[in-house]
Amino acid sequence: MQGLTTHDLACIRGERAVFAGLNIAVNPGRALLLSGANGSGKSSLLRVLAGLLPAAEGRIEWEGTDIAEDPDAHRARVAYVGHMDPLKLSMTATENLAFWARLYGMEPETEAALHQFSIAALGDVPARYLSAGQKRRLNLARLAIGQNSPAGPSLWLLDEPATGLDPGAVSMLANSILAHLSSEGVAIVSTHGGRLDELLDGHADRFSISAGAP
């Protein structure tokens, strides 16, 4: 049973080849920790896997089927957390979270999701007044929403999710990821090492992206 595999994947940004000939495979219930220097293409790889960027060459398969055959189905199985926190500053934490939940056709059960990242008390606070770490927690709470809904996304693509988080929040994130893996989910996480890597150890494979490029 395969989860996600790529075959000779290449990505070009502007006029520069970011990576090429990339082959990775992640089984269900496993996480892949991406490492690599700045500019090595971790973010680009995650965006290609999410379908946000087109691959210049190669293909991506989910359970043996090319994702290009049904892009809508692929988008439905992806939960993407990028560099930035997509929050509207004048909306409260609950409103922000509920909007994304509804837009993705999920139940807006924000209370439990906020609780999972220990920001339930901030539900009625406009995002403007949240600290950087709290914003990140709110962004990550989207993952909890998907986790608690029946047909939640099975492929998590997290781009340096631990940035700005205190050790407590990193544990909460790790617990969420581990719970996701235990229900046969797949997670691909870019990191620069640190506590998250240790907490996921034993459930994760490692891939250094610079080593994968020619």
Binding site: A10, I12, E15, A17, A20, A56, E57, P214
Partner: peptide, 8 residues
């Protein structure tokens, strides 16, 4: 490496 120059 720079595939866009292959046919250019």
């Amino acid at each position: 490496m720079f595939h866009r120059f292959a046919n250019p």
